[in-house]
Design a protein around this nucleic acid. Sequence first.
DNA 1: ATATTAAAAGACCAAAAGGTCTTTTAATAT
DNA 2: ATATTAAAAGACCTTTTGGTCTTTTAATAT
Lengths: 147, 147
Amino acid sequence: MFNKETEYALRGLVYVQLQQIKGLKPGIKEIAIEIDAPLFYTGKILQRLVKMGFLQSTKGKGGGFYFDLNKPDVPLKSVIHAIEGDKAYTGCGFGLKSCSDEQQCSLHSQYAPIRASIDKLVSENTVQSLARDFNRGEDILLKRLKS
Amino acid sequence: MFNKETEYALRGLVYVQLQQIKGLKPGIKEIAIEIDAPLFYTGKILQRLVKMGFLQSTKGKGGGFYFDLNKPDVPLKSVIHAIEGDKAYTGCGFGLKSCSDEQQCSLHSQYAPIRASIDKLVSENTVQSLARDFNRGEDILLKRLKS
DNA sequence: ATATTAAAAGACCAAAAGGTCTTTTAATAT
DNA sequence: ATATTAAAAGACCTTTTGGTCTTTTAATAT
């Protein structure tokens, strides 16, 4: 559904939040291992997330990644949008036409509610809400489970 | 939602069916123009569809592409699956875990019905049913309308 | 027979996605 | 001050996807 970068980003953000709840501030190495993503690529992605303002970081001893608690919760949609645009949850998805509400292809009317559901899903779920939900079973959900 | 090859393939198949209804047998050039896809790439994709048995063709004068009327209608799902596998309509889509019915992540239960709807959509709609639906407005739906 | 037409085959190229690695910069503990 | 630690920056590489083009093969009309 989403590309690898988005996947790793979402997993990484949820993991950071999960650790933050415990008062910890994980680093790249730990995060990469725990979310089962390539080490250097994870570093690159986390950096991008920091630059985009989704995440904070500090260098040096005791450094790592954490969230600014003053900022509002982060909907999955905003992360997805920042990384890969809105192609995943907008558009007809069949390439037969650009879906609008005036001009409909026969797939449009069937796909419209699906698209709306996806949009709702990624809008309502946040990194924080997922971390909350995941707290009973974090190892099962994040660790060593691919794609 | 789907990759370019799948998009062009679906558009191409629907266009061929649309012409076949009129008793015509279009060639690569015509198809590429009408579905607004790159000429040579369209040729390559059509060849692949023929090799996979979705479509028939004849070379030489009066040649072109057509469907074997003895074969059953072609669900979109079978074309999609043949080209890009089932990644588009199976799996959790969030990469947080592999979705199964035993082991659920909190997104799973929300995403499951969406995935099921997508599966239903591509299973129930066929190249032939789309061509039937498209017959009132073919130019609007296929021609010169990108992605 | 042969000229013409059109698909098949396959080599080749470009861009994007995914991933690796080294060097630089900035914290902090001593 | 300086040694150590860890993120930032960015160069570089690989694979996949998307796309182009030439040559070969097979029909058919004359």
